[in-house]
Amino acid sequence: MAFIVNDVDISAAEPKELLFDKHVEYIANHGNDQNDFEYCMTEFLRMSGIYWGVTALDLMQQLEKLDRKSIVEFIKKCQCPTSGGVAACEGHDPHMLYTLSAVQILCIYDCLDQIDVAGVARYVASLQQPDGSFFGDKWGEVDTRFSFCAVAILTLINKLDVINVPKAVEFVMSCCNADGGFGSKPNAESHAGLIYCCVGFLSITNQLHRLDCEKLAWWLCERQLPSGGLNGRPEKLPDVCYSWWVLASLTIMGRLHWISSDKLKVFILSCQDTDTGGFSDRTGNLPDIFHTLFGLGALSLLGHDKLLKVNPTFCMPQYVLDKLKINTQIISV
């Protein structure tokens, strides 16, 4: 009996080359129409939106297309003077997710000194819990994403010593499932995005030896569908952002070659919008800035010659981390 899978068909008419200039244009113009409903609806994640755009353009060596000065000013306004955390946008509450995005942008612009770095460290430390986990903000949601954010932020600002790292590792490892994957909390279903967070976390904290790489890589490889695209969990449709989460995890684990790069490349390229530029989640859908970064990031991991090398742990250009003298652990097989 045939194997039934949820997947997409890629028609011959879909793009096969990287539409470089279109993407530059798409990102540079993103948000120019501030009356756009979509723009207003996504204000709550603006800081991450800027990080996605800045990183994507930097990978394409087109960073000058964005106005550095206004972005840095924006970030300064978003830092909360009391807690030290950074909000997605002025008027919103600070959160771990947007604090990481802000720090990543400032590292790319090489101007961390523009914000209160000690405040950032204080904020992150204040969110660690006795079991080693992290809240996303003061209201108490726990998630392995926030563990990743915490150590990524503190490593970028060179203040990892303000938290209890062994406890943090213990919590992340308690979220490891029998299938080798990780979920958002202990016993939660394995999920490629959260696996990326946990693998990235272990790479930053130099604890990759704690992974059961054979099992985890098995699970990650099963994400590849006949179309070449990767999904994030069993039976889900392929999605460009999982090209990043899965591929980056496999890269950190030294097992990128376990999936078919050629087929994945075909899938990612088919998600480009030929009219507007940008990548969508899957073939035929509308593009957005989030999938645009992760499409480009995945192509960079696959060695695309028009893109700068990306660091699989931080999802930032490798040269930025080199400049900061940050080494992330990678398993070599």
């Binding site: 009996m1 045939a2 194997f3 039934i4 029998a178 299938d179 099963e222 069993p234 039976e235």
Partner: peptide, 20 residues
């Protein structure tokens, strides 16, 4: 389920988890 609906990843994964 496999007999009725054909071969699916969910059936296979859950069977394996139960076997394990």
């Amino acid at each position: 389920l496999k007999n009725l609906f054909g071969f699916r990843e969910s059936f296979e994964n859950h069977r394996r988890a139960s076997l394990r």
